[in-house]
Design a protein around this nucleic acid. Sequence first.
RNA 1: GCGGCGGUGGCGGAACGGUAGACGCGAGGCCCUCAAAAGGCCUUGUCCGCAAGGGCGUGUGGGUUCGACUCCCACCCGCCGCACCA
Length: 849
Amino acid sequence: MRFAMAERRYDPQEIEPRWQAVWADERTWEVANESAADGVAAPRAGFQGVGGFMQPGGLEQNSYVLEMLPYPSGEPHVGHLKNYAVGDTVAHFRRRRGERVLHPMGYDAFGLPAENNAIKTGIHPRDATQASIDSYRRQFRRWGISIDWSREFGTQEPSYYRWTQWIFLRLYERGLAYRKQAAVKWCPKDQTVLANEQVDTEGRCERCGSLVEIRQLEQWFFRITDYAERLLSDLDGIDWPEHVKTMQRNWIGRSEGAEVTFRCEELGIDYPVFTTRPDTLFGATFFVMAPEHPDVLRLAEGTEHERQVRDYVNHAITESGEERGDLDKPKTGVALGRTVVNPVNGERIPMYVADYVLMEYGTGAIMAVPAHDERDYAFARAFGLPIRRVIEGTDPDADEQGLPYSGEGTLVNSAPEFDGLDSRTALAEIVAWLDRGGKGHASVNYRLRDWLVSRQRYWGCPIPILYCERCGIVPVPEDELPVELPEIEDYTPKGRSPLAAAEDWVNTSCPTCEGPARRETDTMDTFVDSSWYFLRYCDANNDRAAWDQAALREWMPVDQYIGGVEHAILHLMYARFFCKALSDMELLEVQEPFSSLFTQGMITRDGAKMSSSRGNVVAPSSIVERFGADTARCYVLFIGPPDQDADWSDEGVEGVHRFLGRLWRLSAEVAELAGPPGEGSPAAADAQGPDLELLRKAHWAIDKVTGDLRRFAFNTAIAAVMELLNECRRLRDAAGTETLRFALASAASVLFPFAPHTCADAYELLTGTRVWEQPWPEADEALLERDVYELVCQVNGKLRDRVQVAAGTSAEELKQRCRVAPNVRAHVDGREIVKEIVVPGKLVNLVVR
RNA sequence: GCGGCGGUGGCGGAACGGUAGACGCGAGGCCCUCAAAAGGCCUUGUCCGCAAGGGCGUGUGGGUUCGACUCCCACCCGCCGCACCA
C-alpha cells in the first residue's frame, strides 16, 4: 500500500474562502470594456486577464453570459443556486476556451414584498431591500460565483432608475408610451392595476392569487402591440427552447381574417367585426356584442329590452373571470331589440349582448354563424335562432348531423357567384368583394394587448410625467431626472398611489409655462426595470448616459441567458419589446436581446414546490455551511438534466460531497508522494499497462466533459469525472505517480467549472499552477481509440458472447471470431447461418434459422 | 378541447437504431476502530440454477428492422402552458 489513507481532511470551509479571497483581491472575473474610457475598472496592472494566454494576438471573442437577475428577498433559495451554478459553469467553460466573458450581477429591487413589509413593520422598503441585497451578495460571493462585481447595481438605485425614466420618456416621444382610459384589471389585495400578462388563466393576480376585478381607469400603457408581428416573426431566428417560443406565439395569438362592417340602420352606426372565416358570412344569422361594449346600453335604450340589457350587463361585468370563463356553463345573453345589416346579402339580423363575446379581443362584437361555430351554435340553440349551413364538408357521410361544422369545404346557400367554390377560394373572393364595396378588408388580429405599466404603489420607479393645468401632460425635462421617490409616512395603499399623499412632492411647477403642475403619482411596473438591465451591465458606471453605444456593440446581444421558465412570457417578451423599440430609435443595434436561452427546471422537495408554508424549504446557506459551496453547486447540477424539475435529496448531497472529498484527498496524497511538479510528464507514446489505461480514461473524460458542457449535460459531465476518479482509485497502486498526477489534474481541470474551489486547490497541489489560467484541455484523439476492444457477438440479435479483438480487424475476421466464440457455437450449432451483420468496432450479429 | 414535456431497477437518472440500467443514492456483507464518526473493499434489475448458463424486463397494444428505450401507428397515465380569441 503506497498511500496512507485518509490522512488529510477535505475541508471546504478552509479551502473555499481562501480561493474566494484570491479572486476578490485580484478582481479575476472583471472584464474592462475595450472601448471604454469610462468608470468601468480596468484590470489591475500586471495581470494579463483570463484567456489572454490563449490567443496572444488578442483575438479573443467577447461573450456575454447572464442569469436572470434575482429579486432580493430574505436570502437566496435553491432555485437561485441552480440558476447561478448553471450560469457560472457556462461562464468558466467559455473563459477557459479563450473567450472574454462578461458575467455580471444585479438586483431587481423594486417591488411589492418590500413595500408590504414596510406596511407591516414600518421598515423603509429601501432599508429592507438593502439588507436583502447585502445578504444575496454575501451568499453569491460565498458560492464562489465568478461575477464581475464592478458592474453591480440594483434597479432601485436613483442612478439606475434615472435611466429607466429616461427610456420611458424616449418611448413617450415616440408615441410608444401613452395614457388612456380603459377597462383594466385591478388586484384588490395588492391595490393596484395589473398588466394582462400578470393575470393568470383563472383571472387571478399572478403575484398574490387574488381574483382580479375590472375597473375603468386612465392609465399609462406601452404600445407593445405595434411590435406584435416582429415579436412573433423574430422568434424564428433565436435559439430558444421550443416550448418557450410556443408560449410566446400563443400569447401573441396572431390570426388572419377580415374586418367586416355591419351597419345598424336604426341608429346609423357601423360596427366592424373581426372574423377568421369571411367565407361563412352568408351563414351569419345574428350579431353579438360583449357586455363591456360601450354602445350596448345606448343601443337598447328606448327598446322594450332596455331594462333586461341593463341587468344583464351589470351582472356580467361584476362576475369574476373565473365564473365567466367557465366553458361548461350554458350560453347566456339578451336581445338588444336592434338589428344590423349583413353586408353580403343585405339581410337584417338581430343584435344580442352575450358574455361569451370578449371586449378585449377583436372589436368586442362578432357576427354569429351558428352552423359553423360551436359557440354560436350553442347560443342559437339556446335562443331558438336560425341555423343556416353555408359550407358543405368534404366528408359526405358526416353531413346531416354534422353541425356545427368548423372545417373547410364547399360553399352553399351563399350567392351564385360564390356557391360551389371551396372555402379558401371563396374566402379570398369574398374579402376582395367586400374591399371593393368598402364593406370590409383583409385584416390580421392579435391577442396581445398593450402593456399596462402604471402601478398604484410606492416602491417602484416614478413615472417622469407632470400634469399641468394649462399644458396638459408634460414630460419631466431630461436634466431633472431622476424624479426621486419622496419620503412618505404611510405606505398603505388606498386605491391610489401612496405617493399622492406626498403633497410637497406632488405639487410642482410646469417646466413649460411655469404654472402649477402635479406629478404623476403612479410608479412603473417592476417589469419595466428588468426590461433593460442587461444593457446597463455593458456600461454600468456611466453617469452621463444610460450606456455608450460602443459598449453595447462590444457585448450585446447576450450569448447565453439562463433563467426559470416562469418568465417565458412576462419578462422575456417585455425585454424583447424594449430591444426592438430602442433599436428603432437607434439607441441599440440588436433586435433580440438574448440569442440563446436556457430554462432550468425547478427543484422540488418531496415532489412539491418548496415554500415556507409547506415547511419543506432547503436553505442553500445550510448546505454550504455543512458541505461547502462546491458540493452544493455540483449537487444541483448532478441531480438530473438541468432543464427538468428534480427532487431534492439530502443523501444525494452527501454522495457528491464524498466524491469531492475523494478527489481532493487523492490529489493531495499524489502531490505529496510525487514531489514538485514539472519533471517527467507522462508521454503517451511509451505508456503501457495500467498507465496507458489510466491515460486513456483521462482523455476519455476530457472529451466527454467537453461534449457534455456544450450540450448542457452537466449531470453526465460530473458522472464522467467520477468515473475517471474511480479509475484513479482502482489503479492508484499500479500506475505511475506521474500518470496519476496527470489523470487527477485532468479531473480537476475539467471539473473546475462546477467545483471551482476544490479544483483550484487540487490543481495547484498537483501542478503548482492556477487552473483558471490554463486553457481548456484537449483530448488526444489517438488515445480515444482503443487498440483492443470487446466485440459483441449476437445470435438473432441476442447477446451470446464477447471476445477481445484488435482494433482494425477486418470484417471477415470479425465474423470468424464471432462464429467460433464458445457460447455463440452453442446457439448456432446445427442451424443454418442465413445472414451475418458486422458493425466494425462494435458487434457481429449472426442470423440463424 | 388544443399545444408542449415526460413514463427505464428500491430511488435520482445513463444509453449516435447496436452489450439496457453509466454515475450517484439506498440496501446487504466485510475491513479499519476499544467504540463511534470518517474512510476503505465487495455485492446489488428480476426469476430459475450450486455453477456454467438461461428466461423475463424501458407505460399498453401493434408495426418497421438482422437488431427498437430509441423510428412509425393507435392508446393509457402524469405534469406544465393555453383555452368562449370569433
